[in-house]
Amino acid sequence: MADHSIKGKVALIAGGAKNLGGLLARDLAAQGAKAVAIHYNSAATKAAADETVAAITAAGAKGVAFQGDLTSAGAVEKLFADTVAAVGRPDIAINTVGKVLKKPFVEITEAEYDEMSAVNSKSAFFFLKEAGRNVNDNGKICTLVTSLLGAYTPFYAAYAGTKAPVEHFTRAASKEFGERGISVTAIGPGPMDTPFFYPAEGADAVAYHKSAAALSKFSKTGLTDIEDIVPYIRFLVSDGWWMTGQTILVNGGYTTK
């Protein structure tokens, strides 16, 4: 019987320096992970990455951080190679990378579309590819998507539309990797109380999002808090291994599928 606990495992988190990714890194270390490798995109995030590595180390795990722009296949391949060289083959691979654009369909430029596609779709595809090549048997892979995949709404065509392919990537990967005992899932939070959320939304939209979920009034912000998502990902990369090929929306009743 495979061991599905987090204790003694190696984890890799793309976008793991801060916000949800940083909290996940700290949580996995606290749950007994042997090592947690985190990725961050730009030099501006290095200080946050260093703080997260220090927290991982303080929790008793080995922490390492790698910088890279994951919109190229080569960069994703290098991230996994660097992780394997530093801490060994991962048992858990989590991709939290994403970019939000809220804009009317007819105003979205080709350059904006290309960037959104590269960040939200291409990087996810090649992360799953390299995870399939590098994650140990009976490992766990999880990608962050968005609850907008269950919404009927304007202005998010380039965001939700470029996250949508990850649902099929997840299904296909779960079928192909399942023979090795690897589970593959995607999780779609509702609008999250992070610095990425507010710049894309006007005051009226923020007020709407803070009241739109069925459980909004019981949230400290009215939005999905990163602390609400961590237990679900923790479950999916441990005892929840029997769930695979699924996209799960976790949003307090903001949208459903």
Rank of each mutant, 00 (worst) to 15 (best):
T255I: 15
I56W: 01
A93N: 03
T71C: 01
D228P: 11
S42D: 12
L215G: 12
G98R: 00
G253M: 13
I182S: 05
L24Q: 01
K18Y: 04
N138C: 14
T83D: 12
G150R: 04
L101F: 02
Y198W: 10
D114F: 00
P199S: 11
T244L: 04
I226R: 04
V119F: 06
T109V: 10
F125R: 06
S211L: 11
A118K: 04
I226K: 04
S174M: 11
K18P: 07
K140F: 13
A58Q: 06
E115W: 00
G8I: 15
A200S: 15
G139Q: 11
S183M: 06
G88C: 09
L249K: 03
G88N: 06
R171D: 08
L101Y: 01
A81E: 15
T185E: 12
N19Y: 07
Q31G: 08
G222K: 04
A124E: 07
Y159A: 06
A54W: 03
S72D: 09
Y152C: 13
M116A: 03
V230G: 00
A118C: 06
V119H: 05
I229H: 01
F66M: 03
H39Y: 07
R133K: 13
K7C: 14
D91V: 02
N138E: 15
M1L: 11
I141E: 08
A59C: 02
E77A: 09
I92C: 01
A2H: 13
N120Y: 03
N19Q: 08
T221C: 09
R180A: 14
E179H: 15
F126H: 06
G202D: 15
V100W: 08
S123T: 10
L101W: 03
V230S: 02
G8A: 09
V10E: 11
N19W: 08
A33L: 08
R180Y: 13
T109W: 07
A59G: 02
G188S: 00
Y232F: 14
V64E: 06
R171M: 13
G139L: 11
V184F: 12
T185C: 15
P104K: 05
D225V: 05
P165A: 03
P90R: 04
S216W: 15
V100R: 04
S5M: 10
C142W: 03
E201G: 05
G150Y: 08
L249Y: 10
A151M: 09
T146G: 00
Y113Q: 07
G188K: 00
D193N: 02
A61I: 05
K18F: 03
E115G: 00
T221Q: 09
A124M: 10
K102W: 11
A11Y: 05
A157H: 13
H168S: 13
Y159N: 07
A118Q: 02
K18H: 04
A73V: 13
G181R: 10
I226Y: 00
G132Q: 02
A61L: 01
D50V: 09
I56K: 01
T170C: 04
V53P: 12
A75T: 10
T153G: 13
K78T: 15
Y40S: 00
K46Q: 14
I141Y: 06
S219E: 14
A124G: 10
F126W: 10
A58F: 05
